[in-house]
């Protein structure tokens, strides 16, 4: 079911959606978004590419092992939680603050965002490994 229009459009749109999903991830702490949504959005992008190009081409363009995302994501989330233990605080205690960067001005950082990044990776990993394993079967 190859379609030239779909193929072309998806290639262009791919990066737009990807960037949008990152934006969703980063702003998730202060506005609607976050790891779950961004993860699903990213997966949706890849699936679009997948539908347009077929599994073989997907592997050429994106030589990513999505299954590996799951443990990596879990690890990031767990480690973020473990850090406060060293300071004698409970597991998963978060910290946040504001930093002044030269170009961007004041931005906020929070360890919870790192945690959310782990969530993001897991969601992408889970969704993509399910879909690709089914598609390649």
């Amino acid at each position: 079911m190859k379609s030239f229009i779909l193929e072309t459009v998806s290639k262009v749109v791919l990066f737009v959606i990807l960037i949008f999903s990152f934006y969703l991830l980063l702003r998730g702490h202060n506005a609607p978004g976050g790891g779950f949504i961004a993860g699903l959005m990213t997966s949706a992008t890849f699936i679009l590419l997948y539908l347009a190009l077929g599994p073989g081409a997907r592997k050429q363009i994106l030589p990513l092992n999505f299954r590996a995302f799951i443990p990596v994501g879990l690890l990031i989330s767990a480690l973020t939680g473990l850090v406060p233990l060293a300071g004698g605080k409970p597991f998963l205690t978060s910290a946040f603050g504001y930093a002044d960067l030269p170009v961007f001005g004041e931005i906020e950082w929070a360890t919870a965002m790192l945690f959310d990044f782990g969530v993001y990776l897991v969601v992408v990993g889970v969704t993509m490994s399910i879909i690709s394993v089914l598609g390649e079967e």
């Binding site: 946040f96 919870a112 969530v119």
Partner: peptide, 27 residues
């Protein structure tokens, strides 16, 4: 929690352990 999106702060901060469990279930 340092965040304005309350739902997200609940997920990644207040109830972070639950989310941790949840993504494990996903895996």
């Amino acid at each position: 929690g340092g965040g304005r999106n309350i739902v997200n702060v609940i997920l990644v901060d207040f109830r972070g352990l639950d989310t941790m469990g949840e993504i494990t279930v996903l895996g």
